[in-house]
Amino acid sequence: MSNDKLIQIKNFDFLYGTNQVLFDVNMDIPEKQVVAYIGPSGCGKSTLLRNMNRMNDLVEGISHRGDITISDKSIYSKDTDVIGLRRRVGMVFQHSNPFPKSIYENVVYGLRIAGRNNKAELDEIVERSLKSAALWEEVKDRLDKNALGLSGGQKQRLCIARTIACQPEIILMDEPCSALDPLATTKIEELIHELKKDFTIVIVTHNMHQAARVSDKTAFFYMGKLIEFDQTENIFSNPSNKQTEDYISGRFG
């Protein structure tokens, strides 16, 4: 049975120094579903996303109140292995960022860091990950070629393959298609539909229709507050909050 509360965000406040950017966010994210975060720039959606694998730990002067749990375990508990957390909660960024290495080495990068060097095992993971990222057919004959020679869409799918290779439970995507053309965007969106069979996905997007197309649930943020969180079909056909309605219909401000 799938877990309706794989990730729980509880009374979560977040501050950069004295500047509070998230206010009392509460949200349960179900397993193997796609959740989209939408909202205007500066609303806190990326900040919340980056808290879910503690990427914000790298920023000076941050602090938080409340908690985020994954499978009922706080990601902020003292015994949390942050590197292990980030392996469990992978991330794909706005701009694809493959390393200047071969396609093969990009996919196995995380595994090598974890000390896994068995060639047969890595070969198998590379094929499986590239297939999952819908890239295998396009690159299977040039795995030793420089990843920087791939197209923008291919690079982004390579980054997804690199994330999948570490076998995370959760994939965070921060505007993964904003630098891609419509065709590459469609491929990533189709991929997200496939990936949710195995992974829980949280995606930040500025593209309303992308949120509508790919997600099961949508959360609308405004000025650091979670305004509405509901099934995507409800948000886009009959939102219960006026601010949500104004934002998704382009009447904001």
Binding site: M208, H209, A212, F236, S237, I248, S249
Partner: peptide, 8 residues
Amino acid sequence: QPVASDLR
């Protein structure tokens, strides 16, 4: 591609 009340 209207949404919400516009779509309805």
